[in-house]
Design a binder for these strands. Sequence first.
DNA 1: GTCTATAGCTAGATAGAC
DNA 2: GTCTATCTAGCTATAGAC
Lengths: 191, 191
Amino acid sequence: MNTVMAIQKVADEVVIEKLMEIFRSVGYDGASMTELAAATGVKKGSLYHRYPGGKQAMAYAVLDHIADLNNSAMIKVFFSSEPADDRLSMALRSIYDFYDGGKLACVLRALSHGADAGLFRNQIAAIFQNCVNGFMHLAADFGHDMNTSIRLAESTMTRIQGSLILAQTFQKPDLFQATLNEVRVEFHKRI
Amino acid sequence: MNTVMAIQKVADEVVIEKLMEIFRSVGYDGASMTELAAATGVKKGSLYHRYPGGKQAMAYAVLDHIADLNNSAMIKVFFSSEPADDRLSMALRSIYDFYDGGKLACVLRALSHGADAGLFRNQIAAIFQNCVNGFMHLAADFGHDMNTSIRLAESTMTRIQGSLILAQTFQKPDLFQATLNEVRVEFHKRI
DNA sequence: GTCTATAGCTAGATAGAC
DNA sequence: GTCTATCTAGCTATAGAC
């Protein structure tokens, strides 16, 4: 081909990150194409070229991106040969960082409300499930029995999500950090 | 006065309940005036007569309504002379009912996202704080020391909110019920 | 692949008759 | 206090030049 394509000015990954940022802070319905275009630095028309499915496709892409990030993190928790305690620390650390210490809302939660929320539920559930599975295996590595591991994993996800809500409504990120510490303690409790 | 006012066709309380229902299921930005009018059975023009402040005013009214409900429930937890254990059961029971056993999302959470979310944060925080205070006093009545009571109260709210999220994304209301049970156990743990 | 311009529609909100 | 009719602004999405 000797056709010269116009250069992509903003990398796909950068666009995704910006889209995620907006969806996270104002939700799906709250995010307008105008705002998304402004935030990404990509004009509306170009955004539609990248995501022919429009806003929905952008949300899907963001969720795919998060699923990838999540998988990478979870693979470390699963298959690393490091001690279970170190892997727990890594997992909690990456969660801590992902939410900027409790200052950021959860994109998954932001996308789980709204008129078209049903469209994203399966993707969101899959990511949550992936996390639950990771924590479950980790709990087993800590020596907990299966039922305890399941309950502990679900409880961990429950507390993370819940504490993010409280941390943001009270504007006290500490509540998030405190919850992560409590989770840590729970894992170490003897059976 | 001999002026005859036109009759109010739908009671204010009924309207509030319907508004709450819509905000809860689709969020603030996701709720259109057309939808709100249809759900309440009150035409747009009439809705604006009742709430001159428009959609924002409706959200405020819903939050005020919830604050009232919450206060009534909390007063029972505070000032009733019944045993602490019975009051805990009452509190958990009313929470269970309010969320229809985990099948309903939390309106407060639904209103805490979106472009104008900041407008509602103080009202939402006040309601959450009211709950935390109630559970804190209750924990004290259970014999827990102050620090434990605070942590337990915050942890309770954290778990309730978090488990609602998981219950809805996984469409497993049981997770909510299970969490309420766990909370109950925590309160009974000896110091 | 970039962009501008605009179509087509629905949003929230208002005016005014009854 | 009810309603219908309507306004304007903003929305998502598209068309087509470069």
